[in-house]
Design a protein around this nucleic acid. Sequence first.
DNA 1: CTTATTGCAAAACGTTTGCAGGTTT
DNA 2: AAACCTGCAAACGTTTTGCAATAAG
Lengths: 132, 132
Amino acid sequence: MRYSKQRELVMQQVEALHDHPTAEEIYHCARRECPGLSLGTVYRNLNSLVEAGRVRRVSIPGQPDRFDHTLAWHGHLYCTGCGRVEDLDLDPGVVRQLLDGQPGRVTDCVVTWIGLCEACARQAEAAPAAAL
Amino acid sequence: MRYSKQRELVMQQVEALHDHPTAEEIYHCARRECPGLSLGTVYRNLNSLVEAGRVRRVSIPGQPDRFDHTLAWHGHLYCTGCGRVEDLDLDPGVVRQLLDGQPGRVTDCVVTWIGLCEACARQAEAAPAAAL
DNA sequence: CTTATTGCAAAACGTTTGCAGGTTT
DNA sequence: AAACCTGCAAACGTTTTGCAATAAG
C-alpha cells in the first residue's frame, strides 16, 4: 500500500472523531482540511484501512457502517434514544465461554446491545409518561 | 392489522424456508403460489410481521436482511464459506452474565459469529493448501 | 362505506466501480 | 516508467415510498 495524503487524513479523522463516525461524517470533517476530497475516496480508503487492520468496521442493523479506531476486540451498545454508539468492554473469558462448544471455526464475533445508554435511560425514567 | 392473503403467504414462506431466507428469496418462492405478488408487498409485510413480533429480522454485516421464524432469542453463525446462516443456541445465563454490569437499559442483543460452519471447516482442513 | 392493503414504478439510501488524469515510488 | 491513487459520475443492490386501484371489515 502506497502513501496517500487522503488516506492518512481519513485515518486521522477516525482517530479524532473517536465516537464511531460514519463514512459521511468522516467525509464531512475531512473536507475541511482537504476540500477536493471525494466521498468515493473516503469509502475506498476506509475499506483498505479495515483490510490492513488499522481500523475496525462497526455494523449496526439498519444503519450505515461506522468506523472505530480501537483495535482490541469489544462489543457495542447502540442507543435508540440518541443514536450514539458506545464501546462495551465485555469480559473476553465470558465471551469465550459463550463460544465454547459451538461448531465450526469462528474468525470474528459481533456482540451488539440495542437499547438506551445510561443518560437516555435516566432521562426516560425521569419522564415516564412523555408528552401529550 | 387486517387479514391479507399476501401477508399470510409471506408468513408461511418464512416458516417453510426455515433457513433464514432473504426478502428476495421469500418473494421468489411466494410468487409460485401468488404470481401477481410484488416485491414491495413482501418488504412491507415482512416489516409488519417483525413489528407484530411474528417474525424476527436477522442482520448480517454487509448482507441483505434475513428473516427467522424462531421467536426465542438466539444467536447466529454466518458461514463465509457457503454463505449460510445457522442458529446458535447460546446459554442465556452466560449471555446475561456478559450483560451484567453494563450501563443503560438493553432491549435487544445481537450475537453473531463470523466464520466457517462445521461442514466448511472440515472441508477446509481436508484441503489446506487449495488450488494452485 | 371506510380504510388497510396491493401492484407498480420511481426514488431513496449507502456503497461500489469504471475511467481518465494525477501521484508516489 | 510502472503502479497506485484520485475525483467524478454513473451504477449498483437493497429497501422504501407515492400513487391510483382493490379488497377487507
